[in-house]
């Protein structure tokens, strides 16, 4: 009991720090990783979800519509070290909306599914907390953008 109390105190100390000082990649050794090579496809548009999300530990990826197999891949944007994608797969079974493939010579990705996310939450709640914080920031941004858009209608 005393043990978790100490941990809870540490946790609270962390949470009171500015969000900028918390880096999700400090916790990355708790996530299984895999090395990919150029042009390997990570998720394919229209494919059923494999219930995994991905963190880019290093490398560059390209996101786009279409697939290289059908030779209609059209790049929309790039993702790079520190970014993550595919989180909707953790919470729903929607098919993948876009294709993501490796752009750099090599790329190392952290792979997270629901099971290991819950396991990590068990041993290292700060990791999940950081993830949560990142999405809350994005949500606040998105909500204010939506508000602006609705305001413009008048």
């Amino acid at each position: 009991m005393v043990f978790w109390k100490t941990k809870a105190v540490q946790f609270l100390l962390f949470t009171s720090m500015s969000s900028n000082t918390i880096n999700i990649f400090d916790y990355v050794n708790t996530v299984p990783t895999k090395l990919f090579r150029k042009n390997e496809v990570i998720v394919r548009e229209g494919e059923p979800s494999n219930e995994k999300m991905y963190f880019i530990l290093n490398g560059t990826l390209k996101v786009g519509m279409g697939t290289p197999e059908q030779k209609n891949f059209q790049e929309v944007r790039k993702l790079t070290t520190g970014q993550f994608f595919g989180e909707i797969a953790l919470i729903s079974n929607r098919p993948r909306a876009m294709t993501v493939m490796i752009d750099s010579d090599k790329a190392q990705l952290g792979i997270l599914d629901k099971q290991n996310l819950i396991r990590i939450a068990n041993s290292n709640p700060m990791f999940v907390y950081c993830l949560l914080q990142t999405y809350v920031e994005r949500l606040i941004e998105a909500e204010s953008r939506l508000k602006e858009l609705i305001g413009e209608e008048k």
Binding site: L90, I91, A142
Partner: peptide, 26 residues
């Protein structure tokens, strides 16, 4: 909140799920 995060990992996961859903909807 700190205690619950330690004691029940599904608590943080539940919140994460909700936030991602809201982000997706927004």
């Amino acid at each position: 909140f700190g205690k619950m995060s330690q004691e029940s990992p599904e608590f943080l996961f539940l919140l994460l799920k909700r936030i991602i859903e809201r982000l997706f909807e927004t």
